[in-house]
Design a protein around this nucleic acid. Sequence first.
RNA 1: GCUCCAGUGGCGGAAUCGGUAGACGCGUUGGACUUAAAAUCCAAUUGGGCGAAUAACUCAGUGCCAGUUCAAGUCUGGCCUGGAGCACCA
Length: 825
Amino acid sequence: MKESYFPQEIEKKWQKVWEETGAFKTTNDSNKPKYYALSMFPYPSGKLHMGHVRNYTITDVIARFKKAQGYNVLHPMGWDSFGLPAENAAMKHGANPETWTDENIAYMTKQLKMLGLSYDWDREVTTCKPDYYKWTQWLFLQLYKKGLAYKKEAAVNWCEECGTVLANEQVIDGKCWRCDSIVEKKYLSQWFLKITDYADILLEDLNKLTGWGDNVKTMQANWIGKSHGAIFKFKVKEIEGMEVPVYTTRPDTVHGITYLVVAPEYRDIEKLTTAENKSAVESYRANARKMTEIERLSTERTKTGVPLGTHCINPFNGEEFPLWTADYALVEYGTGAVMAVPAHDTRDFDFAKKYNLPIKVVIQNPNNPSECKEAAYTEPGILINSNGFNGMNNEEAKQAITEKAVKEGFGEFKTQYRLRDWLISRQRYWGAPIPIVYCEKCGIVPVDEKDLPVLLPKDVDFSVVGKSPITTSKTFIETTCPHCGGPARRETDTMDTFMCSSWYYLRYSDAKNTTKPFERELVNKWLPVDQYVGGIEHAILHLLYSRFFTKALRDLGLLDFDEPFKNLLTQGMVLKDGSKMSKSKGNTVDPDEIFENYGADTARLFILSDSPPARDFDWSDAGVEGCYKFLNRVWRLIATNAEDISLDFELPEQLTKENDDLVRVVNIAIKGITNDIANDFQFNTVISKYRELTNAIYDWRNKKSELKNEDKLVLSFAITSLIKLMSPVAVHLTEEAWHELGAKTSIHDEAWLTWDENLAKASSITLVVQINGKLKDKLEVDEGLSQEELQKIATESPKIKELISGHEIVKIIVVPKKLVNIVIK
RNA sequence: GCUCCAGUGGCGGAAUCGGUAGACGCGUUGGACUUAAAAUCCAAUUGGGCGAAUAACUCAGUGCCAGUUCAAGUCUGGCCUGGAGCACCA
């Protein structure tokens, strides 16, 4: 065996062997239990970055570990390959998005193979290929038939830079998630998916996801934003038969209404405006339209508004109050109108102060029972000035007051969600075309399923500005109506790429199917995903959409489970010098360079070594160097002892009983490493245990000048165990070493190791002796001693004897096998 | 403002149940080997006190302040700081 470790040679060699022998292919028929390990698939942006390396290494180690434990493992990979960067690159370089994407996929595939990832490439999925997007379109049609896909005119988020609309989830702080430019509101007719139909169950089922972190679940719960309240309808005094409904979570404060606000975009606002107020209201609305979302939503800005001139009547007490419009009311939420109770709502209070509107207290503030001058009182309390409800606790009053409104016909209980429907139209080329045609006679007509896929046209001009390149195609737009056969026009919008990524994990179960998106039996066999690994940035977007898709497809009868991802690991970011690696900061590290200089095994080991997977990981060149040295050290250990190691050894019984320390150390390592992986995949401590074991073997070996036969057996046991334990991480090194030692089969086909509980602990116990809870002495004692014996040993230790002499012993606590605490005065 | 997460040496981090705080590594310092360097190996490395130094001893110490307990990094209450998410959502 060579004395030196040459990762570049070894790695290429084994990657080739694994590929040729189909080492990582998964079969559907196996009587082993299934395990589905999945990384979030990448966008083929050009090259892998360290975030990818971290993500895929984590999942790969999990997949290999589970395979060794006897599971039939599905570990696939694919490409989230539709999207704007391809189109932008095409426009910039005059190339074609497809060519650009294919080249990137080819390069990144090569990189993934260099990392030694155990994918079953036969199940590769590429969302921009017709054999995939045919089924994305097919699923859209099923959703459409079920009434879950619909078109409507609405105020939508428009990114001028990207030239397309965006879903709410893709607007971050009023800016586009992709290009960071300011998002505007536009009124457009667009396609939506009715995710709001599932709002309640998406929230409810978060409870089932015990394998998800609370952070992700709370983010989703906040995003869905469920609140309980009531709708009240107020008659307009000046207009016969007209009512303004409001949504409130504080029906208990209804007697304290002193005005009412409608959003500037409120649909009946013109009717509600008197002739005198018309011009003021018009200019206020025009101004609101001009403002960006960011300006409008800024909480620092003082509230503004103008009166409409009309009034409403409060049916609870007959009081009249004026109608205003103000942009702190949002047209998309609730009814677009707010009942204002300045005494008990901070925003209403600010507004009332500014415009001198009355403030009427209806919930008693214990510190200031009848006035409200400084700030709104928003805490619970007892009702006053509320007719028949005076003296009632406000929580009860919510119920009682709404019940009264229901009974008298001017109100109802209402549950409201913050979640809006998912806007899926995009005015871009590089996406799956929405399979819809518009016919003058028949209107909106879905494409016939047998005519799928609706292929992306090739005859497009990517240099056009201000419209989607797809609209330049001469062959695409004009078509015939599937219904009447007459002339019709194709939908030119494509689907949000998140549509494609909302079901890819299902397709892996049956990636080659040409007659349906997946066979029901296979999808039910493999799903749900047992372990999903990816970035926290998808906490809402992709993970919420996928949960919705799964539930919708279950309701369509395509599958029989209701949550797609049983366990979720959100890996932390890869940092360099304390900030996220990014091209703009210039602190990126190119994986290719690491592969070339140190090899993939070093990269894999290092990316797992320093931080637990969920936490951020700080990249350091010294750390890489350290891992490379460690692998060299492991290699030398094996190489220098190769002649004394046999693979088909058997430990004689007396060795397993007679306390050979190294045998114990190995058992401790097997137990510790197995438990660390089982316990939230703590790979950082797994790796520290590799080092401890390696150090222990070196120490043991250095103490022996000559090896007896028995010693050789122990050494063989220790080294082969080390090789197997390290095999999920250092995949190439361990395979090479295994074969160098004479193996004919792969280390990766060997079963995971088990340990002997009796040997997985030290031969003696360190008894800790404390006085008043402070460590005073340590004693080596036998394991089996009774509490009385331990107490005797502790109190008779010379050190302790001296310390307690002259003191009164109050109490002695003995923890078996661990410690004795003597309490003295 | 609301919600969630985190805070431990010079640094990354470790510590099933409340029971030896600082595993393992990085860095640093010293040494061995070498003509020299690289590589490798060995040793020290929380802070303070006493010490020429070593050893021994001793006090303090897991963001802060209280509490529970024989015993708190770990449990409870109240803060502080940092990060993330949401946010005029009525």
